[in-house]
Design a protein around this nucleic acid. Structure first.
Length: 455
RNA sequence: GGAAAGAUGGCGGAGUGGUCGAUCGCGGCGGUCUUGAAAACCGUUGACCUUCACGGGUCCGGGGGUUCGAAUCCCUCUCUUUCCGCCA
């Protein structure tokens, strides 16, 4: 959530930012936050004054008792009744204003950075980089330093490239390839769990393990500490990273013990630092974790959920950083380079999008999505979302650091990104690398997979 | 699942109704000494809210209660540890 300081220091910018995110009623909401703060302060000042008076009297009673002046002590006691009532009254006023303010702040999204493009949806996202894909019009524009809005993306060029690379007649979507090579059994998953829980078999299972090991090894090389957290978390952790209360219905909930299955490793790995004050010398903290991720995906349907496109359980390697405000942007770029490096090594066609205000998540200040092109589905699939949350998440988490310079306690910045989520990577690998002889495994992955082809 | 004990500042650990936000040790920071470091010695060292400031208020796992006054007493919840049971 936003800090009051952010709001007071830069009211107009905050409102403009919220409007960029298409948050309705931004101006009114901010005015309300400030009004509630004034109410709270007034109540607190009255309460504090009454409490100070009460403390004084109580202390004097203590001293009178010690001196054996019982009657004077009793006289002092008589004064306390109305003070007590006042304190209770002001305290209630204060607590109410505070709670109302907090509830309101929880509904206000993060303020996007200046470089976030204007826009309402996917069409307005800006492609800022791409690779392994000879879509010349886009490449030329990017080379000239001009990002391409998705609404201007030359889709026909993508299809032409895909058609050229694999003869149309042979091109199979990954769900058919999975069957052809006996890699994944979706029906068995339905039998033992339900739709969206695939069973990986043989070479399919080995490919999963190879990717997990590859992604973890690359993260380790880049200086991330490997964490293996619990995949089930308590309510406080859900609130800490913002999945609760907003996305209550999207998480699997074990009601008997009131625990939640994690939708991403971001939740446990970031909550490691909940209620902590970190020494600046420790920053940036760079952690990575492989976990299974669980998402109910209520309301999804159609081609979006076909095959591996959208699952209830999937594997993901997440990178998480805790950093200073001064360095968080540099950290973000390092993360983006890392993710891009993975896609280069996997030889997958990719593009990097800077999300527009309307398409960003509630909590992000700046977010880049990575998409890979699926040559059989003729569409781009999101495989990573790499965001800087500024202080928004840290404020909720109470994650702070002690500045080396002046020992002041200040909110950290938090960042995270997928590096990477497996299912759509697998989908693209299978579809894009299909040949007459089998499915080609990219060179970087071969040591982990132990073969150069799936046959 | 049964029984018992416990939860205090970065850590360890005192404190059972009245100047206790909390003795002390470790750690951290500053200094003396030293060419430098270590050791020793001296000093200092929580967070949050509020105030231009002085100051004031809150916090001893969470919530509630008793009392003029609660870290300390009562209720309740959560968690941890130990023993028994079960068990990969």
């Amino acid at each position: 959530m936003l800090t009051l300081k952010q709001i007071y220091d830069n009211q107009d910018r905050v409102i403009a930012g919220l409007e960029k995110k298409h948050f309705a009623g931004a101006r009114e909401a901010i005015a309300e936050v400030i009004a509630l703060d004034a109410t709270r302060k007034a109540a607190q000042q009255k309460k504090d004054a009454a409490a100070a008076e009460m403390n004084k009297i109580s202390k004097s009673i203590g001293m009178l008792m010690a001196q054996g002046k019982r009657e004077e002590a009793n006289a002092a006691k008589a004064q306390t009744g109305s003070l007590k009532e006042q304190i209770a009254l002001f305290d209630k006023e204060m607590a109410q204003a505070e709670e109302a303010q907090r509830n309101l702040l929880l509904t206000i999204p993060n303020v996007p950075y200046d470089i976030v493009p204007e826009g309402t949806g996917a069409e307005d996202n800006l492609a800022v980089r791409m690779g392994n894909w000879p879509n010349q019009a886009v490449l030329d524009s990017l080379a000239a330093g001009k990002p391409v809005a998705l609404r201007d993306w030359p889709t026909h060029a993508d299809e032409a490239i895909a058609a050229e690379r694999i003869a149309q007649s042979e091109k199979l979507p990954h769900w058919e390839l999975a069957k052809k090579y006996n890699l994944i059994d979706f029906d068995l998953g339905v039998k033992i769990s339900g739709a969206g829980f695939p069973v990986y078999i043989g070479q399919g299972a080995r490919l999963q393990r190879a990717l997990i090991n590859f992604f973890l090894a690359e993260a380790n090389k880049a200086g991330y500490t490997e964490i293996m957290p619990p995949t089930v978390v308590n309510q406080a952790s859900g609130y800490g990273t913002g999945q609760l209360p907003d996305k209550e219905g999207q998480m699997y909930h074990c009601e008997v013990d009131d625990l939640y299955l994690i939708p991403t490793a971001e939740v446990p790995v970031t909550n490691l630092y909940r209620d902590e004050i970190i020494d600046e010398a420790q920053l940036p903290i760079k952690n990575c974790a492989y976990t299974e991720c669980f998402r109910r995906e209520a309301g999804s349907y159609g081609k979006d959920v076909r095959g591996l496109n959208r699952l209830h359980e999937f594997s993901k390697i997440e990178i998480v950083r805790i950093d200073t405000p001064e360095h968080s942007d540099a950290s973000h770029h390092e993360m983006l380079d890392h993710v891009e490096g993975l896609l280069k090594k996997l030889e997958l066609p990719y593009r990097v999008l800077r999300l527009c205000g309307g398409d960003m998540s509630f909590t992000a200040a700046l977010c880049y999505d990575f998409e890979v092109y699926s040559e059989a589905q003729h569409r781009w699939l999101e495989v990573s979302s790499t965001s800087n949350f500024d202080t928004y998440q840290a404020n909720r988490l109470h994650c702070r650091y002690r500045r080396a310079e002046d020992k002041k306690v200040t909110l950290c910045h938090t960042l995270n990104g997928s590096a990477l989520a497996l299912p759509r990577i697998v989908a693209a690998l299978l579809e894009n690398n299909q040949t007459e002889d089998g499915i080609r495994i990219p060179a970087a992955l071969q040591p982990y997979f132990g073969a150069d082809m799936i046959k």
